[in-house]
Design a binder for these strands. Structure first.
Lengths: 216, 216
DNA sequence: TGTACATCAGTGAACGCGCGTTCACTGATGTAC
DNA sequence: TGTACATCAGTGAACGCGCGTTCACTGATGTAC
């Protein structure tokens, strides 16, 4: 099989290293030497390290938003004006999340990248993502709103973010957790297994009773 | 009031900068210039940047483990051999987490640091924490085991980590989330408010029905 | 068919810069006799 | 009470190093006439 071209080799290598060590800890020299391309090639093809980081994200998020919009279209067509149940929405999101990196065989990398985007440095990345990919998330939350009419808006907002946290944290810290789990109960853990375990937890969390009102 | 001494000034400044930007993105020059101490003072007092990072953690985790052990002692004494209910255990943990940084007035910093420890680079930090502070967590999970006898061990393990993820992710990404929340529903959000919202979610998640068995 | 020029992917070496760390040092305080 | 020495907290300047970026260049391919 032919070697992939330089740009692809850079992206393939960069996403793995970024996911493993973060952005600041991964130098262009790390990337280019591992990818066996010239150091200057990154700046030639992408312009800067920052732009490379955004390109790495786009390669996951572009197909993700595309597919997710399509999946939501399908759901809306299927329910034809009726309210889409919460479980179906969550199921659809999970399926899309699982489908995208399956092509590129690394869900872990995808989740690590999302986790980094949330937690890492100032915000140029978060801003970039919100700008380019905020729409599909807005559409999703609007559908969730219809599926959970009894939940106050603020409560739903927070619970969605709680669950986002659970999923990203778990799937992105996967290696560490897998290590601990295997040591404690020498049991093999797969990602699909985790997603299976996450499902009832997320549903229960979204449907939890409302918190007690704060005392005045 | 007298200026705190050099070591304290370094620690106070370092924890804030680390929490804001991560470890790699925070240089000793950033820290020492903001703390108005000599650059060489970090290496004089701590030996290295790595040791400074661990010292920053110790200042939170030492009192935390102390207090948490004490809180669990109290619970065990109060229930006197009977099973401590899950809610009481979670409540106790939440109270301890809130109490420790209250003295130093930064829960956000504490959570950001924990989040970084989980997600950041290789593992020297995770190993350090596991070594020095693993005991109290082991004790806690053992009590949770007694409180949830119907939950399979693996399931409990994962759910505890899911919830750890929720809490750390939420409280450590607090600033970003607060921004979004305030833009969407110009509503002021306090940390105590979030903890109040987290409580029923965490309880519901721990008590969620078991996942469906995977098909063979 | 041949030639001149433009475009493109990639290269090798160097640039200046900020990094963590080191080292010889100063000046204040404490201790021994 | 005085002197010699040790310890300690802190300093200023320099160290070598790896970083992201730049730049002049090469060689292959495509386009115009």
């Amino acid at each position: 099989m032919a070697e992939p071209d330089t740009m692809t080799r850079i992206l393939d290598t960069a996403e793995v290293l970024f996911a493993e060590r973060g952005f600041a800890e991964t130098s262009l020299r790390n990337i280019t030497s591992k990818a066996r391309v010239n150091l200057a090639a990154v700046n030639y093809h992408f312009g800067s390290k920052k732009a490379l980081i955004q390109a790495v994200f786009s390669r996951y998020l572009d197909p993700f938003t595309l597919r997710f919009h399509a999946a939501l279209d399908e759901l809306e067509a299927h329910y034809d004006g009726r309210v889409i149940p919460l479980e179906a929405l969550l199921e659809s999101m999970a399926a899309t999340v699982l489908a995208v990196p399956a092509e590129r065989n690394s869900l872990k990398v995808f989740m690590r990248l999302l986790g980094l985007a949330y937690s890492q440095a100032q915000g140029h990345l978060r801003r970039h993502i919100q700008q380019h990919y905020g729409d599909v998330f807005t559409r999703f939350t609007e559908l969730v709103r219809k599926a959970t009419p009894d939940l106050p808006d603020a409560e739903r907002f927070w619970r969605l973010h709680f669950m986002l946290g659970t999923v990203i944290f778990t799937l992105s810290g996967l290696d560490a957790l897998k290590d601990i789990a295997e040591k404690d109960y020498d049991e093999q853990v797969t990602t699909r297994d985790l997603v299976r375990r996450l499902r009832p937890v997320v549903v229960a969390a979204m449907n939890a009773p409302l918190p007690v009102e704060p005392r005045e």
